[in-house]
Nucleic acid binder design. Structure first.
Lengths: 340, 340
DNA sequence: TTGAAAGCGCTAACAC
DNA sequence: GTGTTAGCGCTTTCAA
């Protein structure tokens, strides 16, 4: 196996000079540099990054740790968008991305700690889930690098990238009201996903209703865990209780698919119930091009988390201010109630 | 930072004994072992995997390298299923998984070589794409570890996990024929995806037609790159040329979605055109529960590739026999032509 | 069953 | 602009 010393010998310089050419070329005389580069080329030399990592105490790897199990993660298009955003940023910044989905979701946080403490990675991106406040305290106490996708605990001021869904649901509700809808359902995310966060989707919905002078009826709001199945079942139950419902806003695209399937199974179609999709994913736009949608900046969220962890690692900072991204609303349909 | 020496000192043993407790506990007296474990606990010691990697010349990381760009990869449900299969196997075997999607697809193979030569990873899982024969030769010459998802070149006998799509398309075609269909379209994968492989989807289709005494009409077969857009456009063009078509078989689920969208946009529905989906992905089953489908063992393919690369790395073998997985066909619909 | 010493391949200090 | 020396934290002879 060819090492830096083989290159040094062939180029008639010291190992350190080879190292300089590799890492800080500008500190080396051009002539020497060329000789070294030739030797590298001739020997097909590839620096051993593991050795460099040991010396530098830096692995140039970032961990992406998610709970919920692999069948959820890799099949959830939003999580894939987040992962994609992180991958793109982090790899452009010269880091490798380690994706880790622990077997049991309870292990996720320990896994993140393990990756970091073992110096496998320079920092991790994490999902808030049960028990994370303790883990974050440990990260902070030990000065380990982390960023969370969402807020972990009350008063958290730093190291998070959150999405505020208030604007999306507010404008969606407003739009539906302007089309004449009065009985508007909301398939909300479930309370267990809020962590210490406010119930933003509901807030936007309630505010828009209030401004229009429409009574807020709690039973028009159902909760689910972002899945197809929840979307299906919650709408079935919602429709049973409120057969006069004319529009529904969804918290996620998978829920939207479940809702649409339920609509078809009830013998209805998308003209009977006005649906607002939850994420505005490419696939949803293609499959159901006429659906209005809340947009969810998943890719950007992952990307920002990547940017944040890279800057934390590169600049040695322990904390950087948290970021809040906003949802938007895209109107695509003009079906009003009276037109039906 | 606490090292193995700190633990050794506290436990009043040598560093090597601590190392033994960590790696080969059985060679240490139980009493000593307990003392060491206590010290590890007390100091919250976490072995530095980078240092161990350097010494062992083994990183315990596997690379998963794909061409096509991140917006394709992370949005393609089949690739995610493969990734999931690889992740699950590889992480259960004690490896970390590095996911790498080069910016430009032309860089993918160099990226795989780089990861391996730099000792970032112990082995890589690769997609065959243009120019891979050369790269594989380099892997073989330098005795580097790799597995390909599909066959790279003529006569390749080892280190691949391939899927043979003949059975799926054969049974799908047979099924449609038994329902009375005679004009059956095939939205095939494009020739550039075959590599040195045979055109298996077409083979199964042609054979079933032949056995039923139905003429094979080449213009009923269209090609696409597995995408929604290709499914949409190819069916539009197919239907224009063959308005008497009554059934279509798809090479992938994304193409199936495009096809279905095209059917709707033409003012037809799923009773007019009998559709056979391409992959039998969970989402497809949920969205279109009545669709018959070819099954594509993507998860298993990824898993087997993981198993293969792990055994290559662990047992130091350069080559293991290739594996060929089969597609199947799941009949879910009984719409015959005469019933319409 | 345990330990001492050497060294994996690189880079940071410090010389020159 | 370049080289020498030491050492990152672990594991591997080899000896006791």
């Amino acid at each position: 196996m060819t090492t830096i010393y083989d290159v040094a010998k062939l180029a008639r310089v010291s190992a350190k000079t080879v190292s300089r050419v590799l890492n800080e070329s500008h500190l080396v005389a051009e002539e020497t540099r060329q000789r070294v580069l030739e030797a590298i080329e001739k020997l097909d030399y590839h620096p051993n990054v593991i050795a460099a990592s040991l010396k530098r105490n830096r692995s140039n790897m970032i961990g992406f740790v998610v709970p919920y199990g692999s069948e959820f993660v890799f099949q959830d298009p939003n999580m894939m968008e987040q992962l994609r955003g992180t991958h793109d940023y982090v790899s452009a910044a010269g880091f490798e991305l380690i994706v880790s989905v622990p077997r049991h979701k309870e292990d996720a946080l320990q896994e993140a700690l393990r990756l970091t403490k073992n110096r496998n990675v320079d920092g991790v991106i994490l999902y808030p889930s049960y028990g994370i406040d303790q883990i974050i305290k440990e990260f902070q106490a030990k000065n380990l690098r982390y960023v969370t996708l969402g807020i972990c605990f009350d008063q958290q001021k730093s190291n998070f990238v959150e999405v505020d869904q208030t604007p999306g649901s507010y404008f969606a509700t407003q739009h539906l009201i302007s089309l004449g809808h009065r009985r508007i359902g909301l398939l909300n995310k479930s309370a267990s996903f809020f962590m210490y966060n406010r119930n933003d989707l509901l807030e936007g919905y309630v505010q828009a209703l209030k401004e229009a002078g429409i009574a807020y009826i709690p039973s028009l709001v159902r909760e689910g865990n972002f899945t197809f199945e929840d979307g299906y079942e919650q709408f079935m139950s919602l429709y049973k209780e409120h057969p006069d419902i004319t529009a529904v806003i969804c918290a996620s695209d998978p829920m939207t698919y479940g809702l649409i399937r339920a609509i078809f199974d009830l013998g209805l179609n998308l003209d009977d119930i006005q649906v607002v999709a939850g994420d505005n994913l490419p696939l949803t736009q293609k499959l159901f091009p006429h659906l209005s949608s809340i947009t969810n900046p998943s890719y950007e969220q992952g990307r920002q988390a990547g940017r944040m962890i890279v800057s934390i690692v590169n600049e040695g900072r322990g904390e950087v201010p948290g970021i809040i991204l906003n949802t938007e609303f895209v109107a695509r349909s003009m079906h009003s109630v009276v037109n039906r």
